[in-house]
Amino acid sequence: MSYSANFKDRLGRFCIYAIVILLALICLLPLWNIVAISFSSSEAVSANAVGLVPVNFTTAAYTRIIDDAQFWRSFGISVLRVVLSLVLNMILITLMAYPLSKSKREFKGRNIYMNVMIFAMLFSGGMIPSYLLIKNLDMLNTIWALVLPGAVPIFSVILVMNFFSAVPEALEEAAFIDGASPLQVLFKVYVPVSIPALATVALFSIVGTWNDFFSGLIYMTKVSNYPLMTYIQSLNVNIADLLQAGTNSSELSNLTEISNKNLNAAKIVVAVIPLLLIYPLLQKYFVTGIVVGSVKE
């Protein structure tokens, strides 16, 4: 009986590992193929001859992206945007989630605010009213046009609100007895015990802000003000235009090694690298923050 149980446990564990490995390969192989395409020649890519190994290895696509002053300017704009958005998001999310985590008896206007937030999350004014608002506020071609429209992510507020609701009331009562103010209770009691939820919404903020390219297309009329994702999205190789512009023969020779497929693959790789560096730092909090913050007892 014991041997049979152990065999079933080992078989079950083997099946779980096999399924997880299979799913990991399904996710990893397409990305690896994109990396191989980005390092392959345009002829091999056009002939669909690239699998998991680069064909006719070349770094021309990355040279096209990186050897460009505007690339680094756009990179700096994106970094500044992520930092400002993260700071603003975390402050506003925390300050909104704390009072909304209280009962209707403690915060009489709670339901009104919650209904307004849910309505705003489900329905928006649309692209044209948003553009007109930013234009009338004279924020076009400024960093604030990229930061302020997403200053209050309502889903993240609800996630942190539910996490705050799960914090034992005894902790808050003890702090009030010791003479703490509401802000002191928030930042010295609630915030320290809510690191998983806050790290989760911080990850949402970083990933969403970094990957957003559409806002740059709408609110920026000058390429010099593009964030990185918008600038990378706008890159392409047009040999006819380069010939008309009088591009020198050596540069043209290098650019002919690139097709738009190579360049698009390189864009994806460049865009993913910063996220791959940040995600492992916050991943350990991700599951806890999602599970606890999404269910209210």
Rank of each mutant, 00 (worst) to 15 (best):
N262I: 01
P227D: 00
L80P: 00
Y98G: 03
V160E: 09
K261F: 01
T288Y: 02
T142A: 13
I128R: 09
K104E: 15
I268L: 03
T247D: 07
R105M: 12
E169K: 15
F71Q: 03
I16G: 05
E172C: 07
W144C: 06
S181N: 10
V193L: 08
N111L: 11
V53R: 12
N115C: 13
Y279N: 08
L263M: 01
L186Y: 10
N262H: 06
K8E: 14
P153M: 04
M220G: 00
I118F: 11
L84G: 04
Q233K: 09
N89S: 07
L95E: 11
E251Y: 09
L137N: 06
G289K: 06
M127N: 01
A265M: 02
F164S: 03
D178K: 11
L86P: 04
M229W: 00
V207G: 11
K188S: 15
Y231H: 14
I143E: 13
E173H: 14
N236W: 07
L95Y: 10
L203M: 13
G12E: 09
S156A: 15
G12Y: 12
Q70N: 12
S165K: 14
L86R: 06
L29N: 05
K296D: 05
Q184A: 13
L255R: 01
W72P: 06
E297M: 13
V185A: 14
K135N: 14
I21P: 01
I128S: 09
L217E: 07
S38P: 06
V237H: 00
S78E: 07
F204A: 00
V87Y: 10
L92H: 00
V82Q: 08
D9E: 14
P274I: 10
S42N: 03
S156N: 13
V53I: 15
I118D: 10
L282F: 10
I93H: 00
A180E: 01
S130G: 11
Q70E: 12
F213P: 00
T209V: 08
T142G: 09
L140Q: 02
I195S: 05
T58N: 05
I232K: 02
G289Q: 07
Y98V: 01
A202M: 05
P30F: 07
Y226R: 03
I258G: 04
V291F: 11
L100I: 04
C27G: 12
G289F: 04
F107R: 05
I195Y: 04
M1H: 14
Y219C: 05
M1T: 12
M127F: 04
W144Y: 13
F155K: 02
G208D: 08
M121T: 04
F57P: 07
N260H: 06
S215C: 06
I143M: 14
D241A: 14
S78K: 07
Q70K: 06
G109Y: 09
Y113Q: 11
M127R: 02
D212S: 15
K296L: 11
C27A: 15
S181L: 13
G150Y: 04
L23T: 02
L242P: 00
F75I: 10
I278K: 01
F204W: 08
